[in-house]
């Protein structure tokens, strides 16, 4: 079995992607959904850096990972701001109860 560093990091990528996807599927709390998205994106980011390093183009991997970090942070900011507003207007953070965005 391949037990080199790339294989170990690839297992971390698979684990983070799997954990994030599982949490996304079973979470009903809006803030937990944002946590799940963060974990999912960390797996993708680590995968980009690993791919860049393995192909000898670490700078390209880093540049792509930087874009992912920016997009991920914006998603977290907007998701958390949305959670604050939904809590204020609907008094719940259960996403299954949100059938409308109007008060």
């Amino acid at each position: 079995m391949n037990t080199g560093i790339p294989a170990i990091v690839f297992i971390a990528v698979l684990g983070l992607l799997g954990a994030g996807l599982y949490a996304l599927l079973i979470s009903r709390h809006l803030i937990k959904v944002v946590v799940a998205l963060q974990i999912l994106v960390k797996g993708a980011m680590l995968g980009l850096v690993l791919a860049g390093r393995a192909s000898g183009q670490i700078e390209t991997g880093q540049a792509l990972a930087l874009t992912v970090i920016v997009a991920d942070t914006i998603v977290a900011v907007v998701g958390l701001a949305l959670a604050v507003q939904i809590r204020r207007h609907f008094n719940t953070l259960d996403i299954t109860k949100l059938t409308t965005l109007r008060r």
Binding site: G4, F10, A54, I58, E59, Q62
Partner: peptide, 24 residues
């Protein structure tokens, strides 16, 4: 996994700023 290299190639450090600001 069967196609992942067993070790990483030697690190060839390029110019990150050039890649970020010009290529990307």
């Amino acid at each position: 996994l069967p196609n992942v290299q067993s070790s990483l190639p030697a690190l060839m450090r390029g110019d990150f700023q050039a890649v970020l600001w010009e290529a990307r």
